[in-house]
């Protein structure tokens, strides 16, 4: 008799759970969409969707909310990747805000985010008539996300009410809603940052080159390495751009995403670095620190 083992490793369990969630949404909702932000978590989520529906393709489109402040490398990566796999990618930009010259330097990060990300997202979801939207957020990222459901109910304004969430038991998800309301779905809820990297390595998932260490022009501000674009990044007093060997742990808008000093130029080196790193990845995101309970506030207003 063939020898069979019935043990699943951590990564296999996570994969199975995520695929279950992806299929459940595809089966139960009329018009789901996958928020694709080009980052490592999105790459893993998309990879899981490709696996869940193989040999077919995922039965939903991808949506990228473009603030026009993304790193150029991100946009190139996004377009090439989606073209090669023949995926249905939809890009949404809050044109009105862009025309009104909304930017983080003049308005501050809170208002800039509200316009270019949260408002754009809500408009994109409403215009597309999507009743479910996948996001790649993980519970280990941030403390308000630790309270998030896998199926996160949002009212007709996309708002989250953390004190009034639906109980979620076993793997029985409740996606019922009336027209206008929607569900945000987080298939990676139980993954940690290290799981993501180990999985990328195991599955050989293509990720953006910004994650790898490279010499980049930055300015050092409040301990963060902020990318410097000549003529675009306003310098504060005493600041001078300098070259640093660094990489990005998370990808966002370039003015608000800090790099970290790193020599990790390969996946293995990133994982080695992860094992000894002493700071969470969200420390590199300016927007998490612009007010007390930042993420909770943004989520309440409709952010992922």
């Amino acid at each position: 008799m063939m020898h069979e083992t019935y043990k699943l490793t951590n990564l296999e369990l996570l994969e199975a759970e995520s695929m279950h969630i992806l299929r459940e949404v595809a089966a139960e909702f009329d018009n789901p969409v996958m928020l694709y932000s080009i980052g490592k978590d999105s790459s893993v989520m998309l990879h899981l969707a490709l696996k869940a529906f193989a040999p077919g393709k995922p039965p939903f489109p991808l949506l990228h909310v473009d603030t026009t402040l993304k790193f150029p490398e991100m946009i190139t990566f996004r377009d090439e990747f989606c073209r090669e796999l023949g995926l249905d990618l939809r890009v949404y930009i809050n044109r009105q805000a862009i025309d009104a010259k909304v930017n983080p330097w003049d308005l501050g990060t809170v208002k800039c985010c509200a316009q270019l990300k949260t408002q754009a997202l809500l408009d994109a979801l409403r215009e597309g008539g999507y009743d479910a939207a996948f996001g790649g957020a993980r519970r280990d990222e941030e403390k308000s996300r630790a309270k998030e459901r896998v199926y996160s109910f949002r009212d007709s304004h996309g708002q989250w009410d953390p004190k009034n969430q639906r109980p979620e038991l076993w793997n029985l998800y409740n996606g019922l809603h009336v027209k206008g309301e929607s569900i945000r779905v987080f298939p990676l809820s139980n993954w940690t940052e290290l799981d993501i990297w180990n999985y990328i390595r195991k599955e050989n998932i293509r990720i953006n080159p910004l994650y790898f260490a490279h010499e980049r022009d930055v300015i050092v501000r409040d301990g963060l390495l902020i990318p410097y674009e000549e003529g675009k990044t306003p310098l504060q007093e005493g600041e001078k751009p300098e070259k640093r060997l660094c990489r990005f742990r998370t990808l966002g808008c370039w003015p608000c995403t800090g790099a970290v000093n790193s020599q990790a130029a390969t996946l293995d080196e990133i994982i080695e670095e992860m094992m000894v790193v002493r700071h969470s990845e969200r420390i590199t995101r300016v927007i998490d620190h612009d007010q007390d309970g930042s993420m909770e506030q943004k989520k309440r207003e409709g952010y992922f």
């Binding site: 699943l8 990564l11 180990n198 390595r201 195991k202 293995d268 994982i271 094992m275």
Partner: peptide, 12 residues
Amino acid sequence: AETLTKRNEQVD
């Protein structure tokens, strides 16, 4: 990283 990944494959 190699040994870590191996270890990672054994953890439940």
